[in-house]
Simulated assay, not measured.
Amino acid sequence: MQNRLLIVTSAIALLTVGAGGAAAQQLIRPNTTVAGSLDSRDPVSSTGGHFERWRIDAEPGEMVVLRMNSGEFDPLLQIGRSAPGGQFRELASDDDGAGYPNALLQYRATEGGTYEVRATSFGSGGYGGYSLSRSTQAYGASGLPIDIGGYIDLDDPVDADGRHYEAYRFALTNQQVIRIRQESDDVDTYVMLGLVRDNGEWIGLFHDDDSGGGLNSEFNYQAVSDEIFEVRASTYGAGSTGSYRLTVEDVSATPDGGMRPGMITGGWLANNDNPDGEGRYIEYRTFYAVAGQHMTVTLRSDEFDAYMRVGQWSNGAFHEMWSDDDSGGGTTGYDAQTSFVAPFTGIYTVVVTSFGANEQGLFSLEVAAY
């Protein structure tokens, strides 16, 4: 499977063609859907399934998004070009990117010209009708909410820590708050949020393992600028495989935009978290308060000297309103706690960090109202 870009497809025109021979000559234009049917007369692909050929024209650097749906077999999409001698050279493929069993393939054309698309099945013996849609869109750009199922396997990309993942991109505006949740009954989920630079560099911003309860991961994030983000659905253990469901929803300026009074959330301050420029690592949490509420926020850790800053994001910058080092006491005497009367109704942000540089470990954060 490949990294995927979730696309909201625009106006669709339907074209219907016959079997493989006719499809081989059919050009799929942007924002168009075609239909076909696999049967035993079609040629056999490298995956063992019968396939039909289609072709697309693309400009250098153009994003090509293809979606294949079928209610009769497990679709598999391949895109490639013909090598000298006529052999098919695959450039990208996808099996379950649109949620099992449908395929969603993203490919950025490195060269201009004609590409071959093969519509096939995941295994042998897959026959029946299907639809194949093409969408073209600039880097980034899915609408919210995202609610999609997938399956992490050993063919998926691997990050620097050896975890296989499947990725989805979407746009956020400054101050927008989202909730990201990854659920699974098969694997210990691990969800990550970050940015991908034009050179392909991954910039990790947030991650979570078990805050969603059980094997599930969940966190809220508040954007501080207009950006294209990538969420990666992964597993806590390297080499793990299994099914999952990923949801990303906009919870801006609502009680669901952050922790509610009475909630406790956990985390792990680690050296792959956000640096603060002074050798400390940072994680962020958000909570919702109503103007006039008496609030108490407590950061606890038995593994590092907890330090907390509370404030809000405005115009792309964090504005501190309260901070604390050791007022929470605790088993080590190093827990942080601050109490205040909420001056406005909305989302507040907690900067979770340590008092000293390079400190790491588990923590819990509690928000209470009186």
Rank of each mutant, 00 (worst) to 15 (best):
G200M: 03
R197Q: 14
G214A: 12
V191K: 11
D210K: 05
S211R: 08
R197K: 14
F206N: 09
W202R: 14
T189F: 04
L195G: 06
M192P: 04
S217H: 09
V196S: 02
G194D: 09
G214N: 15
Y190R: 05
G212V: 01
D210I: 04
E218V: 14
G194C: 11
N216V: 13
E201Y: 04
V196T: 14
R197I: 07
G194I: 02
S211L: 04
I203H: 00
L215F: 14
T189P: 00
G213R: 03
W202C: 03
G212C: 10
N216P: 10
L193M: 08
W202A: 00
S217W: 10
G213E: 11
R197F: 05
R197P: 03
E201R: 06
S211P: 00
T189R: 02
S211A: 14
D209T: 09
L195V: 07
I203P: 03
E218G: 09
L193W: 06
G213I: 11
H207V: 10
D209K: 10
S211F: 03
Y190M: 04
N216A: 15
E201D: 13
T189S: 15
S211N: 15
L215K: 12
L205H: 05
G204L: 12
E218H: 09
G213L: 04
W202N: 09
R197V: 04
E201A: 10
L205G: 03
G214H: 03
I203S: 03
I203D: 12
W202P: 05
G194A: 07
H207I: 02
D210Q: 11
L193F: 07
G213A: 13
N199P: 00
L195Y: 07
E218S: 15
S211Y: 00
V187F: 07
G200A: 10
Y190H: 02
G204A: 13
L195I: 10
D188N: 14
Y190L: 10
V187D: 06
G213F: 01
D209S: 08
W202V: 06
E201I: 06
D210R: 12
N199R: 06
S217L: 09
D198K: 14
N199A: 04
D198V: 12
D188R: 11
I203L: 13
F206D: 14
D188S: 13
L215H: 12
G214Y: 08
D188C: 00
I203N: 04
G200Q: 02
G212R: 01
N199Y: 01
L205D: 03
V196Q: 14
L215R: 15
V191G: 06
D209Y: 08
V187W: 04
R197G: 13
Y190C: 05
N199G: 04
D188T: 12
L215M: 15
D210H: 00
D208T: 02
L205A: 07
H207G: 07
Y190Q: 09
M192W: 08
E201F: 10
L215P: 07
L215G: 13
G200W: 02
V191F: 05
E201T: 15
L193Y: 06
F206P: 02
E201G: 06
G200V: 03
G204F: 03
R197S: 13
D188V: 10
Y190G: 03
S217A: 15
N216Y: 07
R197E: 12
